[in-house]
Amino acid sequence: MTDQAYNFAYLDEQTKRMIRRALLKALAIPGYQVPFASREMPMPYGWGTGGVQVTAACLTPDDRLKVIDQGADDTTNAVSIRRFFQRTAAVETTERTADATVIQTRHRIPEQPLAEGQVLVYQVPIPEPLRFLEPRENETRKMHELEEYGLMHVKLYEDIARHGEIATAYAYPVRVEGRYVMDPSPIPKFDNPKLAGNPAIQLFGAGREARIYALPPYSDVVSLDFEDHPFTASKADHACDLCGAGSSYLDEVITDDRGSRMFVCSDTDFCASRQAQGHRGRLSPQGATP
């Protein structure tokens, strides 16, 4: 049931055209942040208003939408955004990554590799990768213009001097097509390799900061590093305690106040699919796979 008081996918057509124009320019200049006239949405800034606007501009009635937050379909904000589109666009929804045509995400890239025909929409809080080094927009804009990314390298190098490695665990900056340095949104750096060479279209929406950017399929995306300190995509050194997966990103769950903990896949669809296929982890109710 759509809410007839609002246009298809909530936004009015003029707003959608404005966002669509920005999206096309974003694809034409990979990694460059296109300013757009972000609207005030009926959900708070910082809660996915950028992603919601991008999704609204891309959705067709034929789409199957998946919404995840922290990799999970059932986190409250994912539920809330999914409901918003069920109500305003009457699109089909799914929790299965492979079945989705549009996936809106916060902080994760699904474990299941994406395919052509899929669109991954990221919610972005701070789109400017240089923002924490230089708070002023006028300055960071100039730095992008002149490809002055030395400050970023200095910061990363200071990390190495202090901690012995680059101490950035999420929102790890990348260089796109050898030109723009881009913030991949606060995904764990474990997910960074999936940004590159991805067959799907990746779109990034920052509502409060009014910026849209994009990665065309198969884009060249390199995580910043140094020859003697190469980038590594790390994760907790465990297997999933429910499905036994050894190569998925894990959430840590504290199970009592005496130091017990377990690790489970953050991607709930991935974990559930594996369990349905009979995979078992250390703490599966049915016991581990022999």
Binding site: W47, D69, Q70, G71, T75, N77, R106, H107, R108, A169, Y170, A171, P186, I187, P188, K189, F190, A236, Y249, L250, D251, E252, S266
Partner: peptide
Amino acid sequence: LPHYVDFQAEL
């Protein structure tokens, strides 16, 4: 909002 994923990365 949940930040399990980024916090886990830092942890």
